[in-house]
């Protein structure tokens, strides 16, 4: 398995602003861990991807009736907001 990775790119995908020191130390840690998990590459596997169940007990998804249940009040929903205005959560500008 290939262990090259671009720590900056991964951090960007994970939306974590890493300092230079963190980049170095985490890079190093990740290399060591990936080295270890490479043991998997030697494994001869029988299971096919499409046979894989998400649930370890192979439970099937149950669908729920389309009936409204009351949940949080507006105040409860917004009570933890770092910033809010006129009932909306407010964040710095997001642009596309």
């Amino acid at each position: 398995m290939s262990n090259e990775f671009n720590i900056k790119n991964i951090a960007k995908l994970a939306s974590i602003n890493l300092s230079k020191e963190e980049q170095d130390s985490l890079s190093n840690d990740l290399s060591i861990i990936l080295e270890h998990v490479n043991a998997l590459s030697d494994l001869k596997l029988h299971a096919q991807q499409q046979e894989i169940f998400i649930h370890p007990l192979e439970k099937e998804l149950e669908l729920q009736e389309d009936e409204v249940k009351k949940s949080l009040t507006h105040d409860e929903a917004i009570s933890n907001a770092p910033e809010s205005k006129d009932g909306k959560f407010v964040v710095p500008p997001s642009m596309e």
């Binding site: 998990v37 998997l40 590459s41 494994l43 596997l45 299971a47 096919q48 046979e51 894989i52 169940f53």
Partner: peptide
């Protein structure tokens, strides 16, 4: 691969 190994 990990998913397959887990199934195994």
């Amino acid at each position: 691969k990990a998913l397959q190994a887990r199934k195994e």
